[in-house]
Design a protein around this nucleic acid. Structure first.
Lengths: 143, 143
DNA sequence: TTAGATGCAAATAGTTTGCATTTGT
DNA sequence: ACAAATGCAAACTATTTGCATCTAA
């Protein structure tokens, strides 16, 4: 078949991984979620979309996506299963309410300069970052 | 008894929680670790220090410390158990090598202005943040 | 004194593994 | 064709819960 390969699908293939049905479905679920979803929810939604995909493949795919820097596990929400966050161009930023767990995403984190500075200072190669602010949202704020 | 209460111990008590032996030991373990340690390692080290403390209390304490913004769970390392990171004055920053998992901590993240800006823009009250860069460290970098 | 914390052990998630079978390339 | 990936189910780990007991304040 020759479907119009999404950019992320392309990155999977370019990473040397096969484009399997299980992987495409997992990818779709994460994208549909607008980039914030727990592993538990991914497992559930994948099962809805394609009953035949095993749990294990979902986890294997999440590992792969993390390795490829497409996604990043993060500890929003009380605890339990981690949230996977879609990295747009290698980064992601949000504010999490420590009370109701609402998350607000924002862009333009202005960390480009810092990235360059760190690369020089520590002689590393930085490929992305995750910036998480926490506090109380509008509704949970004291007065 | 009247030991010289560490600043963090004080925050626990000020948070309305009792200062129990289990809590103090967990706190000590986290501090000893220089602020980067997995829950599994905490459980293990606590058992070494005081055989009588139960696993459950360790997790209960970690939840409490997270609620108090003293510590923050983060998904460094492949996966398994999360790392708990000590927040100094509400924030923490590091670079994690996605290959060997070495972490480099740095200070002075310069996000104060951004914090203020976000508080205004979204009408929230921000109490801290976690900034995680990832990429390849000096040793893992291609040439 | 007494509400809050604890330790224990059992119950629950959540995640990983081994392996025969299937599938992309 | 064949290495890579899969699904399954069983094995593991990690974390949580209920409850009788204990303890800091």
């Amino acid at each position: 078949m020759d479907k119009p390969l999404s950019p992320l699908a392309r990155r999977i293939r370019d990473g040397g991984y096969k484009l399997t049905n299980a992987r495409l479905i997992v990818l779709q679920v994460i994208e549909e979620s607008h980039g914030h979803i727990t592993s538990a929810d991914i497992v559930e939604r994948v099962a809805e979309l394609d009953e035949s995909i095993g749990r294990a493949s979902v986890f294997r795919t999440l590992d792969m996506l993390t390795r490829l820097n497409i996604v990043r596990p993060s500890y929003i929400e009380g605890s339990q299963s981690p949230q996977y966050v879609l990295l747009h161009e290698g980064h992601h930023h949000h504010i999490v309410c420590t009370n109701c767990h609402q998350t607000i995403e924002f862009h333009d984190c202005g960390l480009d300069k810092m990235t360059l500075a760190l690369q020089q200072q520590y002689n590393v190669e930085i490929t992305g970052h995750l910036l998480e602010f926490y506090g109380l949202c509008e509704n949970c704020k004291p007065t």
